[in-house]
Design a protein around this nucleic acid. Structure first.
Length: 129
RNA sequence: GAAGCUAGCUAGACAGUCGCCGCCAAGCAAUUGGGGGAGGAAAGUCCGGGCUGCAUAGAGCAGGAUGACGGCUAACGGCCGUACGCCGUGAGGCGCGGAAUAGGGCCACAGAGACGAGUAUGCCGAAAGGCGGACGUGAAACGCGGUAACCUCCAUCUGCAGCAAGACCAAAUAGGCUGGCAAUAGGCGUUGCUCGCGCUGCCAGCGGGUAGGUUGCUUGAGCGCAUGAGCAAUUGUGCGCCUAGAUGAAUGACUGUUACGUGUAGCAAUGCACGACAGAACCCGGCUUAUCGGCUAGCUUCUUUU
RNA sequence: GCGGGAUUGGUGAAAUGGCAUCACGAAACUUUCCCAAAGUUUAGUCGCGGGUUCGAUUCCCGUAUCCCGCU
């Protein structure tokens, strides 16, 4: 039985955590979303969302985007290694675009997993050498 | 029946799966169970108040706001009633800025002239001049002209800031104060050197204070019903109810059944698609703006029937 | 949460309540064999809706959009 809960520990709250992810400058992007990531030490994938007022004026629209992204993360969190993940919305989307956003999100997830596994391999190989 | 006016209400419903944020109960804990979780505008921040801090002997000036009359209210620039003006066949809607004899300013064009003088014709005069002054122009023309939504004066109100207010707890680093130790030495800077001058080390304690956390934080000028007062706004009394509290910021996503509306395909049954404006951030009373629709009540006009 | 400012031809800016102005650009015409330069002419509901006024870009109120500051 897999637990899909999204608790407070899985949320990035502190300004330090945010800025440390930003400073690492690891970045993936496509049409609507920008993803920044950093390996962390808490053994759990954590999420921070950035939806600025510039992308959408209406608070309702911003809230919708936040909720959809959180939901996608919640359902996918067990496929992820322990990373701090910041998702920034670049272009506004609405309800009819849901399937597109889902595909984009999953695509980014795959890329992320591949990248991180290569990093880990490098680390392991360098240690063995 | 159609077209309207005004006031009020509403902003689909039920069930399931996976989740989110408070509260209550159980449990050492993990967790489990119960119950609650956006609006009529939560918006704009245009007014008013509560609350909190600062300032303050008392009073006033300056500055700001309001401006028919009377009332309501915690208060208001709000609301109600009345009067007046305009619009509408009407139900109704919109508006209203006190004082021009306290003083200053402005009054384009036209007009003789825009407030100080004085045009035509006329009367008195030899003349100078005096009296009186139409028509026309214009928003306004001798009359104490118009304009105060120009300054101003008058009346009334007004200390300043805002929950990121304020209160409490309190790392790391840097600096402050006090005490003790070391010491007149050494180090650094000032010119290449010397002298001179300036700065300073270690330990303990103290208080201030940043990140961060806790609180303020939701029971209130509260809501509903009945009834009394009042034309009404509003208000007295009685009974009942408890109705979000987040903080890198919860209130969501998906599925099924069904109601309503719109579009579309179809002769039809029915199928498919879509669902207004919009998201609490200390709390209330208003105003303004956005809004697919639906319901109720009262009233008006026109037409038809009896 | 609190506060300030802007909106005028296509663009950037002026203007005491009395005819909306300047520069660049655009279009048309003149000039030239052609182009450039030069000259002439044209195009504004003064963001929108009300009010005050004889008259509003200007004054007052509301509103929309944009920009900025403090915390």
């Amino acid at each position: 039985m897999v637990n899909f809960r999204f608790t407070k520990q899985a949320k990035i709250v502190k300004t330090d955590d945010f800025s440390s992810v930003f400073n690492l400058r690891k970045r993936l992007a496509n049409k609507h979303l920008v993803m920044r990531y950093r390996l962390n030490e808490v053994n759990i994938a954590r999420l921070g969302l950035i939806v600025s007022k510039k992308t959408a004026k209406s608070a309702v629209q911003r809230n919708y985007m936040r909720r959809v992204l959180r939901e996608l993360f919640r359902l996918n969190q067990h496929n992820l290694p322990a990373v701090d993940l910041l998702i920034q919305v670049q272009k506004a989307f609405e309800k009819p675009d849901f399937m597109e956003i889902k595909q984009e999100f999953e695509h980014l997830m795959q890329k992320l997993v591949i990248k991180i596994s290569t990093i880990n391999n490098v680390v392991i190989s360098s240690q063995s050498n």
